[in-house]
């Protein structure tokens, strides 16, 4: 049996609870196992990003809770939650979000430095990742000196560097051309296989969906289809 990394129970996010409640997320249950390569698809406003934010501890659910490796992160507050994210979750954002004043190498080692990992280990890991993403020659380049695809590869390496429990990627290919997008997917799949790293994407991109081993479809804040379960969980009206 595969080890469960993420366990989301009855997750809801309701805006304007007192007036007209709007369900950004509506009683969602989700289990993700180690090593999965999962895409969450759905139209805009279907709740993909909200679900990722809940799983990543960036947003609080109105109802329900999220367990990461048995820790209920919904109960964590302030710096406790930030520290949990630091040590367990990797993030890749749609618009790369690299630190503009740091070089590619410094961006990749950033989280490991926050974790106070030994310098030798950090340097070794950064070089290894730079090689894996094919940017050894861009080690001292700042983000503005890199293309969008290269920046996103650095962002993936940054997320991977500290070997988190899983990586959440919010529309990682949305701003990339098709060659860069394919390239990035190749790298992520390779890392998924080589390091058994769990990836969860929110995406509109069919290329990502095509290569995902599990596809979750969302509509109106609900999971309406999950290929892991091979049955439609909830039919749209």
């Amino acid at each position: 049996m595969k080890e469960t990394v993420i366990d989301a129970h009855n997750l809801s996010k309701i805006y304007d609870e007192k007036t007209i409640p709007v369900y950004a997320l509506n009683k969602v249950h989700l289990h993700i196992s180690r090593g999965e390569f999962t895409a969450i698809k759905g139209p805009s406003g279907s709740g993909k990003t909200t679900l990722l934010n809940m799983i990543g501890g960036l947003d609080e659910p109105s109802e329900g809770f999220v367990e990461i490796n048995g820790t209920n992160i919904t109960e964590l507050k302030g710096n406790e939650l930030i520290d949990f994210r630091l040590n367990n979750i990797g993030f890749v954002f749609q618009s790369y979000n690299l630190i503009p004043v740091l070089t590619a190498k410094e961006n990749i080692e950033f989280i490991m430095l926050l974790q106070k990992r030994p310098k030798e280990e950090t340097d070794q890991r950064v070089l290894e990742l730079l090689k894996q993403i094919g940017l050894e020659d861009k080690i001292d380049k700042r983000p503005q000196e890199l293309s969008g695809g290269q920046q996103q590869r650095v962002a993936v390496a940054r997320a991977l560097a500290p070997k988190p429990q899983f990586i959440l990627a919010d529309e990682p290919t949305a701003n990339l051309d098709s060659v860069s997008a394919e390239n990035l997917l190749d790298i992520m799949l390779k890392l998924n296989q080589e390091e058994n790293m769990t990836f969860i994407f929110s995406t509109h991109d069919q290329r990502v969906i095509n290569r995902a081993r599990r596809v979750i479809t969302m509509e109106d804040g609900k999971i309406v289809e999950d290929t892991a379960e091979t049955v439609i969980i909830h039919k749209p009206k």
Binding site: G78, N79, L86, F91, N97, F110, I111
Partner: peptide
Amino acid sequence: TREIGMLLALGMNKFK
């Protein structure tokens, strides 16, 4: 704002 949000997301605590 976005950058600080990203730093918080990545795990840079509020004190830092």
